Every structure is written in structure tokens, then in C-alpha cells.
Computed example of a mutant assay.
Amino acid sequence: MMAKRKPTLLACEQSEQHVLLTFKVDADIQDFKGHFNHFPLLPGVTQIDWAIFYSSQYLNTPVNFKGMEVIKFQEPILPNAEVTLSLTWDESKHKLAFHYQSQRDGGVVTHSSGKMKLGDASE
């Protein structure tokens, strides 16, 4: 059996340059193992990986990472959390903006956000 690496998709709202995905970040996702033993949280590198994966799937973006701008990890994403991932693709700049958020106590919590440059392997 392959290790589980992606969350359970609960909802998807899509337009040409934007997609809003709602996930359950299942506790059995492989990336929680060892990060950290007594306080598991979703690694930042996994959040970036998911942003690239889902942007290529829903927005047809290139998959090659070319650089990062303005990245903030503000609140940990814990096992079994329900989060939204907002992805916006700027084709002219080859930049992907991402935001992971959830609801808590009637308000919105931002877990992480940033922008990254994506391109083709030949660039």
C-alpha cells in the first residue's frame, strides 16, 4: 500500500485563474510522521508541494518551482484540520499565490500564504 500524501478533497470552486479547495487534512498523511512526535503538524514544504500539485491539476500551471516570494507560516495545520487552499495564477508573471485558511471561533485563521514563481523545465 502506498503512503498517503494528499488530503481528502471536500469541495472545489474554480474559475479560469483561481481555485478554492476545501480539504480534510487527514491524520494518517505520511508527512505528519516525525514532524513532530508529540505535536504533529503539517510541514511547510508539504503545503508548498500541495499548492504546486493542485495548481497544475486545476489551473494548468507549470510544475517546476523557480523561486519563492513573500512566504509566511503563521499557524500550524494540525491533523484532521479542515482547511481551504486558495490558489490564484498570474499567467503574465508566472506567479502562483496561495493561502491556507480555516475557521476558528467564528473567525478566519490564516495558516500560511505566499507567492512562488513556476515555469517550464527549459526556462
Score class of each variant (00 low, 15 high):
51 A>R: 11
19 V>M: 07
26 D>I: 09
60 N>Y: 03
47 Q>A: 10
23 F>T: 12
59 L>N: 06
63 V>K: 14
41 L>W: 02
46 T>W: 12
33 K>C: 00
41 L>M: 15
37 N>T: 00
33 K>D: 00
53 F>L: 12
35 H>K: 01
55 S>A: 14
14 Q>D: 06
23 F>S: 11
43 P>R: 08
47 Q>G: 09
34 G>I: 03
54 Y>W: 15
36 F>M: 05
48 I>S: 04
29 I>T: 03
38 H>V: 10
34 G>D: 01
21 L>E: 08
34 G>Q: 01
44 G>F: 12
50 W>D: 09
23 F>E: 12
17 Q>I: 04
24 K>M: 09
57 Q>W: 10
15 S>I: 06
16 E>I: 01
20 L>E: 14
24 K>E: 14
23 F>C: 11
56 S>F: 02
15 S>T: 15
58 Y>T: 01
40 P>Y: 01
32 F>V: 02
21 L>A: 05
25 V>Y: 10
43 P>N: 07
28 D>L: 05
17 Q>H: 13
34 G>F: 02
56 S>L: 01
36 F>S: 04
46 T>V: 15
42 L>C: 09
58 Y>N: 01
59 L>V: 07
38 H>L: 12
17 Q>Y: 04
34 G>H: 02
43 P>E: 10
18 H>K: 15
43 P>K: 08
37 N>Q: 00
26 D>M: 11
19 V>P: 04
40 P>I: 02
55 S>Y: 04
53 F>G: 01
32 F>G: 02
34 G>T: 03
17 Q>T: 14
37 N>R: 00
27 A>S: 13
17 Q>K: 12
18 H>I: 07
24 K>P: 00
55 S>W: 04
36 F>L: 05
49 D>G: 11
26 D>S: 15
53 F>W: 14
45 V>W: 07
60 N>A: 09
36 F>E: 04
47 Q>T: 12
51 A>I: 12
39 F>Y: 13
41 L>A: 11
51 A>E: 13
50 W>R: 09
60 N>F: 04
20 L>N: 14
61 T>K: 07
60 N>E: 11
54 Y>A: 05
38 H>Y: 09
59 L>T: 07
41 L>F: 07
44 G>Y: 12
58 Y>S: 01
31 D>L: 03
33 K>E: 05
48 I>F: 05
19 V>W: 08
25 V>E: 08
30 Q>D: 15
43 P>F: 10
47 Q>P: 06
18 H>E: 15
27 A>I: 00
27 A>T: 03
